[in-house]
Structures are given as C-alpha cells and as structure tokens.
Amino acid sequence: MVAVSRLQINQDIKHGVWKGRGTARNPPNRFERARVEAFDDGWDLPEEVSRPRTTLIRDAAKSIIARNDSPDLNFERSVNPYRGCEHGCIYCFARPSHAYLGYSAGLDFETQIVFKPEAARLLEKELSKPGYKVGTIVLGSNTDPYQPVERTLSITRSLLEVLERFNHPVSIVTKSAGVLRDVDILSRMAAKNLAQVHVSITTLDPVLARAMEPRAASPARRLAVIAGLAEAGIAVGVLASPMIPGLNDAELESIVEAAAKAGALSAHTILLRLPHELGDLFSDWLNKHLPERAGHVLSLIRQSRAGALNDPNFHTRFQGSGPYAALLGQRMERVVRQLQLNQERAPLDCGQFAAPAARAAVAQMSLF
C-alpha cells in the first residue's frame, strides 16, 4: 500500500481546486433546460475570482419527518435539519439531492445551505398527533446534522430536546465533533435505551481526509468523539464508509480496529456510490488531486459496479458486486468477528414513547 499522504495532492486554485472546498465545479442542475457555460470573449484580461462563501437559506417546510420504504434500509423515518452540507465531502451520495431545490450538486451543495428553523416545532406537532406510531428517527440520513452552522443555529439540539421530552428513540449519523456538545441529552436518553450514534470515518490519513472532506473533523478528532460518547455511556458505532477501491479500502481493518479501541460497539461499511452528477464530480476530483491514481481507482469502481460508476439497484447499491466487492465484504466480516463487534443487543426502546401532556395527566391521576 502506498500511503496517500506521500503522494502529490494538489490544493491550489490554479489546478481548479478551492482550498477548503470539496470541488470548484458547479455542474448544471439536471432538471433545468437552460445551461450557463463559460466562453472566451477574446479579451486577454484576467478574470477576478472570489472565494465562494457559504449562504444560509431558510426552508419553509410544513412537515419534518421524511419516510422511506426502501427494502435495503434498516430505518423507516428520518429528520434532516439541513439540506446541503458545508463539510464538502466530494464522495457524498447526497449531493445530487440538491438538484431538487434548484441548485447544483457541485459547489452549491456545500455553499448553499438550506436550514429548517421551525424543525423542533414541526417535530413536536407531528409527534403529538393522536395517530402517530413511534419508530426510531434517524438524524443525518442525508446530510450531517452537526455541520458547522449547527454551532450557531442549534437546530439539531432543539430536535433532541423534543425527542427527549417524548421519550422518542433516535439514531444519529455524523462525522462531526459537534455531537459532543449534546452529550448531556444523549447520555440521559441512552440510559433509557433511547439513543445511539454512528460516527463516519473514511480514512485515518489526515492529508487524504483534508482533500476528500475539507471541512469535516479530522480522523483523530472523530476517534476522540467515539471515545467521548462511549465514556458517557452512549452506544456508538463506526461507519467505515464509503470504501473507495484503490484509494482508502486498504485502511478498512485499521479504521475498524482504531474505532473499536476507542469504544465503538459496532462497525459497518458501504461501497462508494456515485449517482447522477456525482460520477463526473468525483472523477474530476480524482484527476485534479490524484491524477496518477485516477484511472486505477475508476477501473476498480467499475469492476465493482458491473462496468458502470454507479448501481442504483436495491440490495447491491451499498455492497457492490463482483470479486473485488465480495473480497471487501469478507474482510469486513472477518475484522468484525475478530474484534467481537456487532454483538446482538436490544433495539432502541419504542415502548416508552408518550406525549408530555399525556404523561403529566397520568402523574396527576396517580395523586388521587
């Protein structure tokens, strides 16, 4: 294995790379007919280019719980307080979802951040409906609930406050150290078997991480997050994802071992997914940052995706197919078995759910 940190990783705008951003490209929205293209106007004058800034956009959502019926997902409902993600991970499968808002999957995804200021009120309203049936809510199924703007907006924390009041189970997916801010709520909920956290770690190499995930917490910081959550009594697992053939897949066992040492109780992985515009964006990133490896990496991805860069089909989209993907799965099974991870444990408890008003009424009746 050749460590990526020893390779040339271009990080300068002259190579078409914005420092601190996952991509400098902003491909057209696939739903728009009109296209804007750069052209040579004949004037040999330098163009003034300013660094892209993050813009926050209010979302006037009328509901907050998203539901899915995908047969290969182990959850049915989720809440995403943000759309778009400033972490800027170049491999993020959620990038193409920004097109539904009229934005690009490229630079727009990491600079045009849509936030839901009424999220907590909407959640409380939905949980209070008489016909509501409880089931674990996942925070961060699409974009990170602890991306940088959460430090000031605290939307995710307000959601956790509602979930705690209702004794509603929650599962969190994040790659941010920001989750430690809410360890007070999460530890109380975990004591009732109402909360768990999954921390995503893609690589242990800080140089590669900085290039792939420019505004996310460093790998060492994420391991510290796992340790901090475990110490607080919160069930925590690691998502060694996505695995990118020929780029970070050699680190699979090392990531899982480091996470287990820090206190992770479970470990899972998925193969890189490149839906819609993401295939071109990721290919462009490879050619700009790691040109000497780009062809090999893309070839291995195609070998694991029946000749294509992406497989949208249920049951194979996460694991891939073919010998290379099968070997990756076998390696994951072996390290999990060796470290005694993924042991059977009670699912999050849905039986404690009750609206605060109903609990207060029961308590009041008990006085008589």
Rank of each mutant, 00 (worst) to 15 (best):
L56R: 05
C92N: 07
L107D: 06
G84D: 12
A105M: 11
R67Y: 13
D41S: 11
W43Q: 14
A66V: 04
A105C: 04
L45M: 11
F109M: 09
N68F: 04
A99V: 02
P96H: 07
D41G: 03
S78R: 13
R95L: 10
E32C: 11
A60Q: 06
Y91G: 06
R35A: 06
N68S: 15
E110C: 03
C89M: 04
I64C: 04
C85L: 07
Y100G: 01
C89Y: 08
S78G: 14
V49K: 10
E48V: 07
D69S: 15
P46V: 03
G88Y: 04
D59F: 00
P46C: 07
R77P: 01
V36D: 02
W43N: 09
R30M: 12
C92S: 08
Y82P: 04
N68A: 08
H87V: 01
T55N: 08
P81N: 12
D41V: 05
P27T: 01
G42T: 02
E47N: 05
S97A: 12
T55Y: 00
D69V: 12
E86H: 09
L107C: 04
A61W: 00
T111W: 10
A66K: 09
A99N: 15
E37C: 08
D59I: 00
P81I: 03
D41C: 12
F93E: 11
A38I: 09
F31E: 06
G102V: 08
I57L: 13
F93Y: 15
A99L: 00
R77Q: 15
G102P: 01
V36R: 14
Y91R: 03
A66F: 05
S78D: 13
L101D: 13
E76W: 11
H87M: 12
R30G: 10
R53K: 10
A94K: 06
H98W: 04
N74S: 15
T111M: 09
F93M: 08
R51Y: 05
S63D: 10
E47S: 07
R83M: 12
C85P: 02
I90F: 04
N74F: 13
E48N: 01
F93H: 06
P46W: 06
A94D: 05
R58H: 01
N29V: 10
R51E: 14
P52L: 03
E86I: 03
S50I: 01
N29R: 10
P81S: 13
W43K: 13
A105D: 05
A61I: 00
S63G: 03
P96M: 09
